[in-house]
């Protein structure tokens, strides 16, 4: 039975008539003879292959075994091939199944928006961790876009990852106009101690007494030929200014008992309110006796920016 299941295929070189006669003399059945030039291919039953080999060797014919035919080799080939295909198919299926489970949600582009909030929205919106075949994430995208500050959202599945890319709305920015020609004016009364003109033309000089609202730097510059060009006035103007603090005592006795200490305390308290740009110069005070009460005023002299 084995004989009918398994055939060996040979290839020989040399004169084909000689080879065929050598095969004929062995008394075996030779089938599927194919001839190409002097090369001959043929099949013999596996049980006869030893005799064929011996005969070919005896006749000095070069030969090689090029394959096998029959049920067993076919079965072996089938199982080898189809088990391999089946293995690949199972691997692909396993990969597809594995990648169908959402492993991680990655959010990019969230600078002002909380990425955890976006990830939570995605997690809540997914039908289950198993998102096999889910391709339409537009509903999730719409949900993400409804979050304040998100202008656009894109959700894609890459392997086990859900990648969320968002584009945030631009923050509102206050645009300050620094170009329209405007003069620089004093914001309080004082005496100029320093003026630095960055742009424009100085309207005051050191030592000038100024009033609140007075123009300190004019909004133009003149070129060498005397032509004026309008600009936004800019600069640093410092002035000696006076701040006043006034309060009353109900009686003279009370004034005598508390005034000295109170003035000192208030002066110290005032000094703590000064900013880095302000410089304390000195102070003076004035006492006015009213009908029953006593009014006291402290004058603090400081140097501060008035524009």
């Amino acid at each position: 039975m084995q004989k009918n299941l398994y055939k060996i295929r040979f290839e020989t070189e040399g004169f084909k008539e000689f080879t065929l006669n050598a095969l004929w003399r062995t008394g075996v059945c030779v089938s599927r003879i194919k001839c190409r030039g002097n090369a001959l291919r043929f099949s013999v039953y596996d049980s006869d292959s030893a005799r064929v080999k011996a005969a070919l060797e005896r006749a000095g014919i070069k030969y090689s075994v090029v394959g096998a035919q029959g049920f067993i080799p076919k079965a072996r080939e089938f199982f080898t091939r189809y088990f391999l295909i089946a293995g690949i198919a199972v691997s692909l299926a396993a990969t597809a199944l594995y990648s169908s489970f959402t492993g991680e949600i990655t959010v990019s582009g969230a600078e002002r928006t909380d990425p955890r909030k976006i990830a939570e929205i995605v997690e809540e919106s997914l039908p289950s961790p198993f998102v096999f075949g889910m391709k339409d994430f537009s509903a999730i995208e719409r949900k993400i876009m409804s979050v304040d500050g998100v202008a656009y959202a894109s959700v894609v599945k890459q392997g086990r990852h859900i990648v969320v890319e968002i584009v945030e709305e631009l923050p509102l920015v206050d645009i300050t106009d620094t170009q329209t020609p405007l003069p620089l004016a004093a914001n309080e009364d004082g005496e100029i101690v320093r003026i630095v003109v960055l742009r424009g033309t100085a309207a005051v000089k050191t030592g000038d007494k100024i009033k609140a609202g007075q123009v300190l730097i004019e909004p133009f510059v003149k070129d060498a030929e005397g032509n004026a060009r309008a600009v936004r006035a800019m600069g640093i103007v410092e002035a000696k200014v006076r701040r006043t603090e006034t309060w009353e005592y109900a009686s003279e006795e009370e004034f005598n008992a508390n005034a000295a200490e109170e003035v000192l305390r208030r002066k110290q308290a005032f000094e703590t309110t000064l900013t880095e740009d302000e410089k304390f110069i000195g102070y003076s005070f004035d006492v006015k006796k009213l009908d029953k009460s006593v009014q006291i005023s402290i004058y603090y002299d400081i140097i501060t920016r008035v524009a």
Partner: peptide
């Protein structure tokens, strides 16, 4: 022409 089978 092709000899396809050769038996004794």
């Amino acid at each position: 022409l092709e000899i396809t089978e050769l038996n004794p």
